[in-house]
Simulated assay, not measured.
Amino acid sequence: MQKVIFITYIITVLEITWMFLQFSITPYLAKRLGMDTLWFGYLQTTVGVIQLLGGPLFGRFADIFGARMALATSCLASVMYFLLLGFTNSVPLLFIHKLPAVFMHILPGAQMVVTDLTEPEKRTDALGKLGLCFGIGMITGSSLGGFLSTHYGESFAAFVGAGGSLLSTVLVISFIPKHTKKQPGAQEHVDKKAKAGSVFNLSEIARLMKFPGVAKIFAVKITSGVPQGAFQVMFSIITMNFFQLQAAQTGYLLAYFGVVQMVIQGAVIGRMTSMYSESNLLLLSIGVASIVGVAQALMSNVIEFCFIVIPMMFSLCTFNVITDSMLTKSVPSSDTGTMLGLCASVQSLMRTVGPTIGGFLYQNYGVSSFGYIQLVVNTLLLVYLMKSGISKREEH
């Protein structure tokens, strides 16, 4: 099982590399095609809607047909995504190439494998190591994307991503078992077969919200994610207009993000989860997010932002790992895939509403508004959680 988890980490690194490769070329391709900030926001919203719809269904698909089938589908969709991007020469095609993103959920797919193959008490640390893989992919993808697009053009960089995703597909088929969940009992097996055709059964997906604590953690995840999501989806515009960075410089900045995330998820989160309860770490991450909001509101250049990145990434990484772990532990093992798909849909929801909120804030109130919104939202959320006694209930 450790070998399977290790291969899953490698696949995650590869796919995150290609994802950040396109992150570092798409804004500049859009600008070259004459797309303004407003239309770029519409493009981001389109991706968010597509993945918002696909996330829960992808998780349900994995629970029924197995993580290998789900991961292979995600990688093949990524191949198609990059091929279409490589041939994009107009704004309509730039929108069309986003359609395969409905199946592109590599990180939730990897989380499903890791969740299935680890014990609950070791799950947080294992999921944290996936964040380490994310950081490695962020570094290599951002640097590679900036280099390739600058020296060989956006199309060539996109075709490199297509070839890389094809390699990931081969690894998935060759090394990931067809089923990674523990073998169910006889009655559970019958129930599973009865539900085999119910990928689109929305009531089965919504049923997970009824488990104790799930709805509350989801509400916290969404509420705290709104200001962060608005900043993230507008980040490429901020780097171009506010920080005045070129494509290669943006790639280096994203690579720096990756280094910070690697250190936090590889050396910090695992140790902290062994020392403190998940609820206390959740409160800590939200409190740090409030402080980061103040710093973002006051920053004036990219050097200051580089210092802010450290607590920002700590808050973001800790928050995502802890909430995902808490949610998967709140449902039966047979539904962890669907739950992780729902978790992924939260990020997609942020990409859906984020461009509209972020574009409005940026054009009317400037970059500082993102920080003030984050400060207010997370401070109120922290007060609410402390008054609701989340730590005491977990200990009980």
Rank of each mutant, 00 (worst) to 15 (best):
G48C: 07
V102N: 07
R32D: 15
L85D: 04
K3L: 08
F360S: 05
S348Q: 03
E15W: 02
G135N: 02
L38A: 14
K122I: 06
S149Q: 08
F218M: 14
M262I: 11
L340R: 10
G135Q: 03
E204T: 08
S368H: 05
I136C: 12
S333N: 10
G185H: 09
A230W: 00
S143Q: 11
T118N: 13
F159V: 03
D63Q: 01
T169V: 06
S224I: 02
K210A: 10
G128Q: 01
F211C: 09
L281M: 15
I25T: 14
F314N: 07
F103T: 11
A77G: 15
P184G: 01
F218E: 12
Y252E: 08
S143I: 15
E121Q: 14
F218C: 13
M35F: 12
D63K: 01
C343T: 12
R123V: 12
K329Q: 13
A77I: 01
V199A: 09
E188Q: 15
E394T: 04
G354M: 03
L361C: 03
S290D: 06
S369Y: 08
S368C: 02
L52I: 01
M312R: 03
C75T: 09
L283H: 06
V288D: 06
A157C: 05
D116G: 08
A30P: 09
K193S: 13
V263D: 07
S142M: 08
R207E: 06
K195V: 06
R32Y: 12
G270Q: 04
N280V: 07
